[in-house]
Amino acid sequence: MKHTEKELTGLKEQVGEMWRLVLSQLEKAKQAYLTGDIELAREVASREKRVNTFELKIDSDCENFIALFAPVAVDLRLVLSLIKISGTLERIGDFADGIARHVILDACSQLAGALKEELGIEAMFDTVISMLSDSFVTLESENTKLSGRILRKDEEVDALYRKAVGILTGHIEKNPAQGYCILETLLVLRKLERIGDHCSNIVEEIVFYIDAKILKHSKNRE
């Protein structure tokens, strides 16, 4: 393997490690939220700094690679994508941390399990987690076949979010005393919806790297 390829492989491996960490943060945030496990939520919050550290290190290493190797073509596209992907993973990590802090605040312990189920929160968690892991597979395999499926999942997340907002609107009218808790729940849902958007952005970056196609703001993304 040539020196340039070794450097690029190293960058990809770092982003892969960050990806696994963020995925684990998100899975733990889900478990903590659904079960009200404050200890697990604290673990997520405490590991947030590691996500930030990854982003800084990857940024710095990518800057050095550009400065020293002057990459072009597929190498340039890869480095540009990795910079954007690590920034996006950091945002997803922030959201996982935000959800964990919501559990730590314990603002919504009175929210009935049946309502949580009706809102489809677990389904939203599962969908964004699968989007994040599928996009990782797409980068690792350098095969963009999965990308259309991942982008469609973002639409599922959006639909779940809109439905949940409708349910919460009805619920707040009937139970105004639970207003604060409902708004907190809405914020969690909003975070999950944004994670879906960020996963779509990651897929767009991977398609840019592998196929040199720009999906961003394109109507026909599939």
């Binding site: 072009v72 073509a73 190498d75 596209r77 040199a212």
Partner: peptide, 13 residues
């Protein structure tokens, strides 16, 4: 940024 031919990509990278 995106050469058409693999030979080109291999050379410039």
């Amino acid at each position: 940024l995106n050469p058409d031919k693999e030979q080109t990509q291999n050379y410039i990278t």
